[in-house]
């Protein structure tokens, strides 16, 4: 067995900041930068390959905790003293696009409160097919089963927009939920919104045309990322909408022809949000109100 460097993640796929750590150590190999990194004096590392800045866990924690109440609406709605108490158990993580937080049947070890990340909840029908039944961003939390007293996750939770989130261990969350009435209120309110969204999505998938559903879904994503630009592959969109890739292409072309969006190699830009809202099915307005 070959010896492993101390920083390497465990064999099970590392999540959150462990991935960032590994990447950071690969980026800063030597020199004064590495010395400063080793002595804890670095906040961020710039990746010249991906042209992005990666925050170190401590810096991320400090920035997230400084602004987490605004970053996640569910936590922001809690009284200050409850939120402060929870801070000790909340851990900032960086969620990576495509990362699977739970598979159906997994025992959830953490709940996640997204900041600028957003996570899709997918019903996995078989190996080739999955269908989105929920989308969670800064308005809520991932790991609702735990709140409802169920150990196993019924759906796949997959990161659809990379970014920051706060996570809490399952046991700590259960304990907090039992003693904190405002957290219960917020979590149950969100559970109701998720249930209503799933119902609406089921009806939408059955009755509405793919371009209208795509428009609805793009607007929902926009509301969560608070940006008109995001990255999504055809495959991902096909799972979101429960259609084949060709169906996604046709729907995207139809919206592009109406100059509502531009879509190139997975990079989506919403060009006319008002027009896209008009092109979306009525479900968008209903789910938008549910998401607060």
């Amino acid at each position: 067995m070959s010896p492993q460097p101390a920083w390497q993640p465990p064999p099970r796929r590392g999540r959150g900041e462990r991935i960032v750590n590994g990447r950071i150590l690969r980026l800063v190999k030597s020199g004064p930068e590495r010395s400063a990194l080793d002595s804890g004096e670095i906040d961020a590392v710039l990746d010249h390959e991906t042209r992005t800045a990666h925050l170190l866990p401590d810096a991320q924690r400090a920035l997230m905790l400084g602004g987490a109440q605004a970053a996640n609406s569910l936590l922001a709605a809690l009284p200050r003293q409850d939120y402060r108490r929870m801070l000790a158990e909340l851990e900032p993580v960086n969620l990576v696009y495509g990362e699977v937080l739970y598979e159906p049947g997994d025992r959830a070890r953490h709940v996640y409160f997204p900041g600028d990340a957003h996570v899709s909840l997918l019903v996995v029908v078989d190996k080739a097919n999955a269908l989105e039944v929920g989308l969670v961003g800064r308005e809520g939390m991932v790991g609702m089963s735990l709140a409802l007293g169920v150990e196993d996750e019924p759906v796949r939770a997959q990161v659809q927009g990379g970014g920051t989130a706060l996570r809490m261990k399952a046991a700590a969350f259960r304990e907090e939920l039992a003693r904190c009435a405002p957290l219960q209120r917020e979590v149950y309110r969100f559970a109701y919104a998720k249930l209503a969204l799933a119902r609406q999505t089921a009806a939408c998938n059955r009755f509405h045309l793919v371009p209208a559903r795509l428009a609805r879904w793009l607007l929902m994503t926009r509301d969560r990322v608070r940006s008109n630009h995001f990255h999504l592959t055809h495959e991902f969109l096909a799972d979101m909408l429960g259609v084949r890739r060709a169906g996604v292409t046709n729907a995207a072309v139809s919206l592009q022809r109406r100059r509502l969006i531009s879509y190139q190699r997975g990079n989506i830009s919403i060009l006319d949000a008002g027009g896209l809202a008009a092109a979306a099915c009525a479900c968008y307005e209903i789910v938008r109100k549910l998401a607060r």
């Binding site: 980026l27 800063v28 930068e33 400063a36 990194l37 004096e41 670095i42 906040d43 961020a44 590392v45 710039l46 010249h48 042209r51 992005t52 800045a53 925050l55």
Partner: peptide
């Protein structure tokens, strides 16, 4: 601020902050 202007820092060849 490299979080606001990463391109500027990348163009200047910066690897870490501060």
């Amino acid at each position: 601020d490299v979080l606001k202007f990463p391109m500027r820092a990348l163009a200047d060849g910066i690897l870490v902050t501060p």
